[in-house]
Amino acid sequence: MSEANRLWAGGNPQWLPLDLNKRAAYTTGMAVMFGSSPMNFSHVVNFVAQNSTVSLWYADNKQETVDHALASARKAVDQVGVDHPGFRIRMASGLIALQQAMNNVVHRYHWLVFGLVNLGIAVIAAIAYRSFAAAVLLLIPVNLSNFLQLAVMKTMGIGLDINVTIVAVMGIGIGIDYGIYLLSRIREEFHRHSGVWEATIEAALTTTGKAIMFTASIMLVGIAPWYFLSELKFMADMGLLLVVIMLINMVLSLVVLPLLVWLIKPTFIRTRDETTDILVGKGQVADDGNRVAGL
């Protein structure tokens, strides 16, 4: 309406503001809709131009903003009342309301999802290593990284929504990979170093540990530009979260997992890996730790 009023006034910007106390403002509104279908303006006014839509715009959809918006809406409803002759006021949907609904679902099922993921990893790890202790050792660094990630999100003002939950679950998958690589290497090196735990862990860190650090660093370098170059907030936040998750998982896998193995000294490490024995066979072990099959 204001733009139409300006154009009909010769394009003079002084006619851009509308004086709602004057009949000209309403005449302008009807002139804008003249010659077109009223359905084209259904997002603003109803078909007979008697009831209009009031839209409120917010800077973001963070939980604090959503809570403030819904509190203001409920306060307004309480002030004008709910039941009126001929109609009843009800809280409707919208971007803010949908965001709150998604946040409620995430809050309700967030820990359930992580619990199921932990349960699945525990079962698979226990079967693979034939030890429940192996599953516990693998899950401790992963879950610790999850709590650190939530702390980083709180510090940076990133809310926990559906997208962040997916990335967090991906972080568990990345972290468990690092743990499996390192734990399997520790198990292999234990017999090569005659059961000396210090030498075993050192050998594992200087071989597979280097590979883990190299792989994680390459992925960090590739994903970090998302945060600085992407103009989409979703892509920027996801890039930042992925970098944080992979960095935390890498550090904890290389620090916490070897420390736990050294402190607990689990018995499954002492048992020989039959798969490794079959692959090595009568092979020789090179000085750099790489297994060379013997002919």
Results as ranks from 00 to 15, higher is better:
residue 20 L to S: 06
residue 203 A to P: 04
residue 72 S to I: 04
residue 205 L to R: 01
residue 168 A to V: 08
residue 62 K to T: 09
residue 143 N to E: 10
residue 133 A to L: 12
residue 238 M to C: 04
residue 206 T to K: 15
residue 283 G to F: 00
residue 13 P to R: 09
residue 69 A to G: 02
residue 164 V to I: 13
residue 27 T to V: 12
residue 84 H to V: 07
residue 142 V to A: 10
residue 199 A to K: 15
residue 212 I to L: 11
residue 39 M to G: 12
residue 236 A to L: 00
residue 227 Y to P: 02
residue 182 L to G: 09
residue 93 S to D: 14
residue 5 N to Y: 02
residue 265 K to I: 02
residue 157 G to K: 02
residue 212 I to H: 02
residue 90 R to N: 12
residue 83 D to M: 13
residue 168 A to Y: 00
residue 35 G to F: 03
residue 285 V to H: 13
residue 200 T to H: 01
residue 74 R to L: 11
residue 144 L to E: 05
residue 28 T to A: 10
residue 236 A to R: 01
residue 289 G to N: 00
residue 51 N to Q: 14
residue 13 P to Q: 04
residue 65 T to Q: 06
residue 151 A to F: 08
residue 2 S to Y: 02
residue 62 K to L: 04
residue 241 L to A: 04
residue 156 M to C: 11
residue 120 G to T: 02
residue 280 V to G: 10
residue 138 L to D: 11
residue 168 A to W: 01
residue 93 S to W: 12
residue 5 N to S: 08
residue 81 G to F: 09
residue 77 V to F: 08
residue 242 L to E: 03
residue 146 N to Y: 03
residue 280 V to K: 15
residue 240 L to E: 03
residue 167 V to I: 14
residue 29 G to W: 04
residue 186 I to S: 04
residue 264 I to H: 03
residue 62 K to W: 00
residue 73 A to E: 10
residue 146 N to I: 06
residue 54 V to S: 12
residue 193 H to Q: 13
residue 102 M to A: 10
residue 274 E to A: 13
residue 294 G to H: 09
residue 7 L to F: 09
residue 275 T to K: 14
residue 33 M to N: 14
residue 130 R to P: 08
residue 207 T to R: 03
residue 178 Y to R: 04
residue 166 I to V: 10
residue 172 I to M: 15
residue 234 F to R: 09
residue 266 P to Y: 04
residue 153 M to V: 05
residue 47 F to G: 14
residue 97 A to H: 14
residue 110 H to E: 05
residue 86 G to E: 12
residue 115 G to V: 00
residue 23 R to H: 08
residue 271 T to D: 15
residue 175 G to K: 00
residue 282 K to C: 13
residue 1 M to P: 10
residue 227 Y to M: 15
residue 265 K to D: 07
residue 135 A to S: 07
residue 90 R to H: 07
residue 226 W to F: 15
residue 83 D to W: 10
residue 230 S to T: 06
residue 291 R to C: 02
residue 155 T to P: 00
residue 7 L to D: 07
residue 133 A to R: 03
residue 112 L to T: 09
residue 160 L to Q: 10
residue 259 L to D: 11
residue 52 S to K: 10
residue 34 F to E: 15
residue 228 F to H: 07
residue 123 V to K: 06
residue 156 M to E: 05
residue 39 M to P: 03
residue 56 L to N: 01
residue 249 N to E: 05
residue 188 E to S: 09
residue 128 A to V: 04
residue 238 M to L: 13
residue 187 R to S: 06
residue 74 R to F: 05
residue 250 M to G: 01
residue 248 I to W: 03
residue 61 N to Y: 02
residue 14 Q to C: 12
residue 182 L to I: 01
residue 82 V to D: 04
residue 12 N to D: 15
residue 206 T to V: 11
residue 234 F to P: 04
residue 30 M to T: 14
residue 140 I to L: 07
residue 15 W to L: 13
residue 12 N to V: 12
residue 277 D to Q: 12
residue 294 G to N: 13
residue 65 T to R: 01
residue 247 L to R: 07
residue 239 G to E: 07
residue 273 D to S: 11
residue 169 V to F: 01
residue 193 H to N: 12
residue 165 T to Q: 14
residue 40 N to H: 13
residue 240 L to Y: 00
residue 74 R to N: 15
residue 293 A to I: 12
residue 64 E to R: 11
residue 177 D to V: 06
residue 260 L to R: 02
residue 142 V to F: 05
